[in-house]
Design a protein around this nucleic acid. Structure first.
Lengths: 228, 228
DNA sequence: GTATTATGACTGACTGGTCAGTCAATACAC
DNA sequence: GTGTATTGACTGACCAGTCAGTCATAATAC
């Protein structure tokens, strides 16, 4: 790139260079000035998702986040207090949209099979099929080092899902819709294969692909018996 | 191995201390000189397990590993080429012992239920019940950044288990021991809850404990129906 | 046995590089 | 012009990896 020579600072060529403005990145699309602050924030979060996903929390460099967002490093600090806040806000911003969908499930008293199939389809569509799966992976990956993230995710997502789903499954068990109350006691068993899918795709898919939708179908089959 | 301890130069207590064996422990016991190379290596691996487990690959500092192992930083480099080699050797050293146990399973033609219960019991005992669970977590946690680790684990552990287990399950399905061939096609469904258990314990147990053995029992119940 | 020399395992201060976070200078909006 | 958003060179901390030096032990000499 070469901050290259100032137009020639000329005369006092003496200066090293002190390259002022040029800046514009290679393709230098002129920056918009204070375009839309909300857009800028979003651009930074987008770039952060990319970098954190690819390199993990410690491995990600804010210089790269800035470059990818088309922004100077200092700008990040106008929107986020520090690297950790950026990470936490990223997780929050990805998780929030699904929180609404959850309440949705509140329609009590759908049949257990419908509930479970609904949960798994939502999981495949809204998580496995989107960047959200990377966020889930990040939570597992960095959760030990960031208890705040794990706590947040448990409180805002997991505890809520369990609270909604358990009573429905309990009733279904009592009603004889389920062989027993195993699923009511351990709803974790329902999405366990979803977790496996996320990890498998991230780590082993290139050595041995896994047909996730088919596996989920097999899982439902085991839980409820063949066909619908 | 073990150039082992010189018989104790004793008498001349005068020496700073030249504490022969003791060493370990906090209080600064004088270093043994070339004590047992195999022991030293093990001490470093132990310390590395602790530090990598607690802080992840990037977060772990070799200064701390050295301190914990009761060794100078330079000594680590006498036993391992660099940080990455230390990490890989750690994973290998933890995984190796179980590889033997695997072949063990080769006894073809045990009933499917026995196979599955055996697998899950082994998992609970040999992985969840030991530091090995932290290694599995590290593999998931760092696997994306260290494809070599993921590849190694897939090749040496996962692929082998699948190769052993699939034919048995297939036969069991044909024999009508299983409702269908779901488990033969996706044996991942068998240990999925084990993975959930590892992650739950690491991230959420402090907010909401999970009775893992009971969950595993419920899982077996779902796969095969109640009682034995 | 004791004295002397040789060996190499071990040490830890140091180097070179990296990167989160800062802030004076700059560019723009008005 | 004034005020504000943005920039990016810079700083300070941190850490993987190095290497000149130390010293317990071993080898050899006596």
């Amino acid at each position: 790139m070469a901050p290259t020579v100032r137009k020639t600072a000329l005369k006092e060529g003496t200066q090293r260079d002190a390259l002022p403005s040029v800046r514009g990145a290679a393709a230098g699309p002129r920056k918009r000035r204070s375009a839309a602050p909300e857009e800028r924030r979003a651009a930074i979060l987008d770039a952060a998702l990319e970098e954190f996903t690819a390199r993990g929390y410690e491995g990600a460099r804010l210089d790269d986040v800035a470059k990818r967002a088309g922004v100077a490093k200092g700008t990040i600090y106008l929107y986020f207090a520090d690297k950790e806040a950026l990470f936490q806000d990223l997780v929050r911003s990805m998780v929030h949209p699904v929180l609404g969908t959850l309440e949705h499930l509140r329609e009590v008293d759908i049949p257990a099979r419908m509930l479970v199939e609904g949960m798994l389809n939502t999981f495949v569509r809204e998580i496995l099929g989107t960047r959200r799966k990377d966020i889930v992976r990040l939570i597992f990956t960095e959760g030990t080092r960031f208890p705040a993230i794990a706590e947040f995710y448990h409180r805002e997502v997991i505890a809520r899902v369990l609270a909604i789903v358990r009573p429905i499954l309990k009733r279904a068990a009592e009603r004889g819709e389920l062989r027993d109350d195993s699923l009511a006691r351990f709803p974790q068993l329902i999405i366990a294969p979803g977790l496996v899918a996320i990890m498998w795709d991230a780590l082993f898919a290139k050595y041995e692909p896994l047909d996730v939708p088919e596996m989920i179908r097999a899982h439902v089959g085991i839980l409820f018996g063949r066909g619908p």
